[in-house]
Simulated assay, not measured.
Amino acid sequence: MKDNDNMTEEELDKELHDLIDEMPGNIDLASDIEKIINNKIRKIVFRTTLAILGVLAAVFLMISPLMNMAYTNPEKLNKEPGQKVYSSLRAYFEVMYPYNEVASLDIEKEGFSRYMLNMQIIDHTGPVKIGRPNVKIEMFKGNLKVKEDINDMTTKLMGRFEIQDSSRIMKELEKLPESAVIYLSVGEINPRPVEEIRKEKITLEWLQVNQPNSEFQGGISMNLSCRFKDTDDRRGMTEGELKKLYISNLEELLYNEYIWKDLGLISGNKIFNNSKEVLQNCLKDAEKISVLTTKNYCVSGSKEQILNYLKNTNIKSIYVDKIRLSSLN
């Protein structure tokens, strides 16, 4: 037999098997030796696995907080007083999207600096149903990306108030059944006080605040379904209170731009890349408004109400947002 100090692992293994073969009358001893070796191997594998898992756990515990510190953590922000993420997105959709309203927001953590924002955005042009999310927005390393939007709630419409062929549209509206409910985006030639339009026999759904000195002009929703604070009930608000609300929403967008900026900023047919600068200028201009006026707004009503209104208003453009055959659907 060779010197054990100079034998390789393969040679030791062969020597061990030769010894076992030479002991035919002591099978139990051979079996015991194999058990001891197998137990030793299992212990080594177990310890190695534990060591690897320990290293991975340490790496995870070190990296996860660092990632949360380096990038926006919407889950944490939304737990703060005021629910910063929810309130910012609610203001964003009110200022930017006629008819759309953020009803709920649930945030799920999905990995290192990766979160899913599960939102329900309701559309005021149809029956309101509060319930399951219909929009999923992923936030990864502080950047937003729409992952699922079943009803195109995040799709932007360019040039909504710039469609000129109003006479043809009115002729088409006249063909509708009397039971029809119509939703329109209307552009007037000259701005009018909001107070005056609110007295008309139609429903004012949303209005774009007239700011000729600002590139960006945002809007105010006049018909919110979810009311979480006093300013969410717009029915009894004065024009002065509406102006304060509009300024408050602009401030919300400006100070929390890092939350929503990847969703984009548009006004009319313009897309703004320098959103912070544009919002700063808009806010300064809004603070100087003495009388709240608008020339671009959205209305709804019956066929009779809408046609009477259009015939008695100095209209420049009409865009049909939606037509329901009756108030029952």
Rank of each mutant, 00 (worst) to 15 (best):
M1V: 10
D3G: 03
N6R: 12
L16K: 01
L16T: 04
H17K: 11
D18K: 07
D21C: 01
E22W: 08
I27E: 14
I27D: 15
I27K: 14
I37Y: 10
N38H: 11
N38K: 09
N39E: 13
K40L: 09
F46K: 08
R47I: 12
G54I: 06
A57E: 13
A57I: 13
V59L: 14
M62N: 12
L66C: 03
N68K: 13
A70F: 11
Y71N: 09
T72S: 04
N73Y: 00
N73A: 02
P74L: 02
S88F: 02
M96C: 08
N100M: 12
E101M: 04
L105T: 07
I107G: 00
K109Q: 04
R114F: 01
M119F: 00
I122S: 01
H124E: 10
T125R: 10
P133L: 01
E138G: 09
F140I: 09
N143K: 15
D149P: 07
N151T: 10
D152Q: 12
T155Q: 13
K156H: 12
L157V: 14
G159C: 07
R160A: 00
D165S: 13
S167G: 06
R168C: 02
K171V: 09
L173T: 10
I182H: 01
S185C: 06
G187Y: 02
E196M: 09
K199H: 04
T203G: 04
W206H: 06
Q208S: 13
Q208L: 02
Q211G: 02
N213E: 15
S214I: 02
Q217P: 05
M222A: 04
D232H: 09
G236H: 07
M237V: 02
K244P: 08
L245T: 13
N249P: 07
L250D: 04
I259K: 04
G264H: 01
N274D: 15
S275W: 00
E277G: 05
G301E: 05
N314R: 05
I318V: 07
L325M: 15
L328Y: 15
